[in-house]
Amino acid sequence: MESTLDIFVKAIFSENMIFAYFLGMCSYLAVSKTVKTAVGLGAAVIFVLFVTVPVNWLLENYLLKEGALAWLNPAWAEIDLSFLAFIMFIAVVASIVQLVEMIVEKFAPALYGALGIFLPLIAVNCSILGGALFMQERQYSTIVDASAFALGSGIGWFIAIVAIAAIREKIRYSDVPAPLRGLGITFILTGLMGIAFMSFMGIKYGGDEEKKDDIKAVVETSVNSNTINE
């Protein structure tokens, strides 16, 4: 069995949102010019993921999943509303982002000053909806696991954007070939960082026990599950 800690560490490193799934690339590329703004956006992503994924987990398990409505009425046990997941999740994300924005503005003006402009951007950040959809696909059994996954993914995203922002600040002083400047070199740098992050695939998690007899099988399955299936 995968423990909660496994899920958390896995979400940060070997299943990093940016390097393994490219989620949230748009804002990652657009807002990574300076470390300061990168930290702001990264913090906002951690925060919003940590709020929305558990809410979506509750929705998924008490409303959408096949048989999820049984707690209301046993006769409804066969209803499967999972096709509505996309529209529900995105509505939840968009409204929670609005709500969070208002609450933060009212009660923590300093935090609002730091996160403010990034919050509206986040409603359409793929990593937030991606978090909800991965949560649905992987069927986390408890809300604690789902929250650990959300927090881990957020932190992974934060690490990625802060790291690339730091590199981009320094690369300004390097002699990059003119056509590669800006976007091109950022892509290639992200690719190289992704290759570095691949080394975290070697970490052994609780769920990997059954595969340990053949190391090659572990590598192949993790490669396949990272690139083809998911």
Binding site: F19, A20, Y21, F22, P177, A178, P179, L180, L183, G184, I185, T186, F187, I188, T190, G191, L192, M193, G194, I195, M198, V223, N226, T227
Partner: peptide, 17 residues
């Protein structure tokens, strides 16, 4: 592996620019 997609797009951008 996922990172190569980024590097290929980087190269396309390079050629285009």
């Amino acid at each position: 592996l996922p990172p190569m997609a980024l590097i290929i797009v980087g190269i396309i951008i390079w050629i285009q620019r």
